[in-house]
Amino acid sequence: MVSIRERLVRSLHERLSAVLAPTPVLRQPAAPLARDAAPALLLFAETERIEERSNRLVDRVLTVRLTAVARGSDAFASADALLLAAHAALLADVSLGGLSQALRELDCDWEHEDADAGAVAQAARYEIRYRTLTHCLSQSG
């Protein structure tokens, strides 16, 4: 069995990979991105909190972060284009194939590093609301 949380993250990864190909979408990379690997989109599952409990059901909120990494003279435009396409792909089906009750954008931030070949990292965070049974994270409620 696989948790709803894992199925949600897999669904995001598959959807983003299909839309952004040939640009790589990397899930929770443990090592820094190599210089020649940019542009790329990084997908991170950041946090999950419990919103409400009622009888046998638990409402959960998963926060994910998408970070577009680009380098070079057009790095800001490249990173912005990645996030633009990713945003459209996510909001095309906010139920994420029936797994989610809601998906909404939270915030964005930007980082720029001149010392690293003009590297840019633009991040956007999203909140995914879903429900499970109290006793089983793999079953929707």
Rank of each mutant, 00 (worst) to 15 (best):
A88F: 10
S140R: 15
V94P: 00
V120P: 01
R125C: 10
L84M: 12
V94T: 15
D107W: 02
R129N: 03
A119W: 03
A121G: 09
Y130T: 06
E127R: 04
H135N: 10
S100Y: 00
S95C: 05
T132Q: 06
V94D: 06
D109A: 11
A79E: 01
G97L: 03
H87I: 03
Q101G: 14
S138D: 12
D80H: 09
H112Y: 15
A117F: 14
A115P: 04
L106P: 05
A124L: 01
S138V: 06
L84G: 09
L106E: 06
D107F: 06
A102Q: 09
E113W: 14
T134F: 15
R131G: 01
A79T: 07
W110H: 10
I128K: 00
T132S: 06
A117P: 08
T132D: 00
Q101N: 12
A119I: 11
A123H: 02
L83Q: 05
D93K: 10
G118K: 03
E111T: 12
Y130E: 00
L96T: 00
I128M: 06
C136P: 04
E127S: 10
V94K: 11
A86N: 06
A81I: 02
C136W: 07
H135A: 12
T134N: 10
A89W: 12
H135R: 12
L91H: 14
A124V: 06
Q139E: 15
L99E: 09
R129Y: 02
Y130P: 00
A89R: 10
A102M: 08
A124Q: 02
G118W: 01
Y126I: 03
I128T: 02
V94W: 00
Y130R: 02
D107V: 10
L103P: 03
G118R: 04
I128H: 01
L133Q: 13
H87T: 15
V94F: 02
E127P: 00
L103K: 02
S138G: 15
T134A: 15
S140L: 15
D116T: 11
Q122C: 03
E111K: 08
Y130D: 04
Y130L: 07
A89I: 14
L90H: 07
C108E: 09
A85M: 11
D114W: 11
I128E: 03
D80M: 01
L96V: 07
A121L: 07
D80V: 01
V94Y: 04
A117G: 11
E105C: 05
G97I: 05
A81L: 09
D114S: 15
L84C: 07
A92W: 05
A123W: 05
D109N: 10
A124C: 12
D114Y: 08
L96I: 10
R104P: 01
I128Q: 02
A89L: 13
T132G: 01
S140Q: 13
A92I: 13
A117V: 13
L83R: 05
Y126K: 00
E127V: 06
D116P: 08
R131N: 04
L106V: 11
L90S: 03
S100E: 04
L84E: 14
T134G: 12
A117N: 15
A119N: 01
Q139Y: 11
A115G: 11
R104F: 09
L90M: 13
L96H: 04
T134I: 15
D114L: 14
D114R: 11
A123R: 07
C136H: 10
H87P: 04
A119K: 02
E113A: 15
I128Y: 00
L83C: 02
R104E: 08
E105I: 02
I128S: 05
V120G: 00
